[in-house]
């Protein structure tokens, strides 16, 4: 399972980065969303999959899956929600004000 997950994660990363390297702001934002998913799955996969019960002591299992990446990911999910929203509003306001979402046209001038 880990092998296929690793391949899937690689694909998610590749597509996410390809999106980030495009010119359109919307695609870039969607790309960062994909990267977030990729990172979450990567964290889970790195700690091995399905090695025990869910990390709830009420399960009274003999082994539990690693709770540490789960705590990390939980934090990350909420943070990335905040960041993505911020990014979206930034893009939307930039477009409203400057009339373009093309990153090449948004580059700074010589004096900045």
């Amino acid at each position: 399972m880990e092998l296929y997950m690793s391949l899937a994660i690689g694909i998610i990363f590749a597509v996410g980065i390809y999106q980030i390297l495009s010119k359109s702001l919307l695609r870039i934002i969607l790309g960062t969303s994909l990267l977030t998913h990729g990172v979450h799955l990567l964290l889970l996969t790195m700690s091995r999959l399905k090695t025990g019960a869910a990390p709830l002591l009420g399960e009274k299992a003999s082994a539990y899956v690693d709770p540490v990446p789960q705590a990390l990911i939980l934090t990350s999910i909420v943070i990335s929600f905040g960041v993505t929203s911020f990014f979206f509003v930034l893009a939307y306001k930039a477009y409203q004000r400057l009339g373009t979402d093309n990153m090449e046209e948004l580059r700074g001038t010589e004096d900045e």
Partner: peptide, 29 residues
């Protein structure tokens, strides 16, 4: 762009495989 993207994807896949293949140290879990 494609080359860079695929390169990163490949590296990440390798990292995922390497990391899930055994631990150099005890987990704090």
């Amino acid at each position: 762009n494609l080359l860079i993207s695929v390169g990163v994807g490949a590296v990440v896949t390798l990292i995922a495989l390497a990391a899930s293949s055994g631990r150099a140290f005890e987990s704090i879990a």
